[in-house]
Amino acid sequence: MSGAHEHGHDQGDHRHPPQPDADDTLAYPRKLEIAVRELLIEKGVFTADEVRAAVEDMDGRTPERGAKVVARAWVDPEFRKLLLADAGRAVESIGCDWNTPHVKLTVVENTPEVHNVIVCTLCSCYPRALLGLPPSWYKSFAYRSRMVREPRTALKEFGMELPERVVVRVHDSTADLRYMVLPMRPEGTGSMSEAQLAALVTRDCMIGTAVARRPEKSGK
């Protein structure tokens, strides 16, 4: 596709600058990845289709998995107890594959007194099996440094005004744990089904940079 184009609309005629294709840089790590992948395929260690399938599988993991876990914990006290004690076993028990046995899933619970938030200051550790790929800001230097250094200010920028009385607990995922936040169940959800509850659980509330959605009130 050509870069610049001309067209007319409300703002009047103007010329857009060429939009860089973010995927076109053959930086060293990318060259290295391609070289190693092609060699391994050539040597028969795995096939190109297996690589493709692995990427497809990774992309197929979305925060809906985590939301399902949270909704179950909201309706089932026994499950909640197991989730906080042994999260890996708990999620496996409802058919969510925690497919990284070398790291330990750890769920931290928000309460009216404590707000939890997760960060990985050293890289980008994230509970991918439950939340999918991390958002780009999670991997940014600003998030990784500010969330440990000034969490209340950083959370405010995410739109979270925490009352003074709430303790902020930052979890730096430095080694073999992967954290997920169990958000508080919103008020006025007593009659909702597990599936309806899951729809209130967003990615960010399982990272701790938001709270779960409030149910929409009918006839507001």
């Binding site: 607990r169 930052v170 979890h171 080694a175």
Partner: peptide, 16 residues
Amino acid sequence: WPDYAGRGNDTLDVEI
């Protein structure tokens, strides 16, 4: 952080 601006009992949990 000696100049930490939040509450006195805010915490940071790190795996070591």
